[in-house]
């Protein structure tokens, strides 16, 4: 499988993903890695119903998602990977998912989070996760939609935000 985009987005499967990025990148499969949703048939059904019919959907636990991404099946398949949080993306990479670049697409305000961009708010847990991604050799960039401005987030930038890198 080729990962065409690995995105952190706390709205999960929604218009920016299914219309914006999918029209741009034309993935064969959308893979949502989320333990809670994967264990809930109703949530799986709701989120899967949001995806255009030409795109396959997999909603799996983080461990199952890693197995799918590492497997040799459908080697030519283009997959877009989604998680709802940065720590979940770190888990995917740490467990061996072939992800070298991560898109921060939507991490919205919650208590304790500070604004980096209008669509990216980070807390200490997120900053630790960003440092971990940097250690694992993953490039990180913030960009909400195709054609939008791409903001690189290298180690120096993460340190300046207070990340313990």
């Amino acid at each position: 499988m080729t990962v065409v985009l690995a995105r952190v987005d706390d709205r999960l499967i929604h218009g920016q993903v299914t219309v914006g990025w999918c029209q741009q990148l034309q993935p064969d499969r959308l893979l949502l890695a989320n333990n809670a949703i994967a264990a809930d048939a109703w949530q799986c059904r709701v989120y899967a119903s949001s995806v255009p019919p030409r795109i396959q959907v997999s909603i799996l636990s983080v461990a199952e998602a890693v197995n799918l991404l590492k497997g040799s099946e459908a080697e030519q398949e283009k997959v877009m990977v989604l998680t709802g949080s940065l720590p979940e993306m770190v888990d995917l990479v740490r467990l061996g998912a072939p992800i070298t670049r991560v898109n921060l697409g939507g991490i919205h305000f919650a208590p304790g989070k500070r604004e980096l961009y209008p669509f990216v708010y980070l807390d200490d847990l997120d900053l630790r996760a960003l440092c971990r991604l940097a250690e694992l050799g993953v490039d990180v960039f913030a960009q909400q939609v195709p054609g939008g401005r791409e903001h690189g987030l290298g180690v120096q930038a993460i340190r300046e935000l207070g990340g313990p890198c």
């Binding site: 709205r11 929604h14 218009g15 299914t18 949530q43 709701v46 989120y47 119903s49 949001s50 995806v51």
Partner: peptide, 13 residues
């Protein structure tokens, strides 16, 4: 407003 968007998902859930 639109089927398949964040509002539709949230309302169903």
């Amino acid at each position: 407003d639109d089927y398949g968007g964040s509002c539709a998902n949230a309302a169903q859930l």
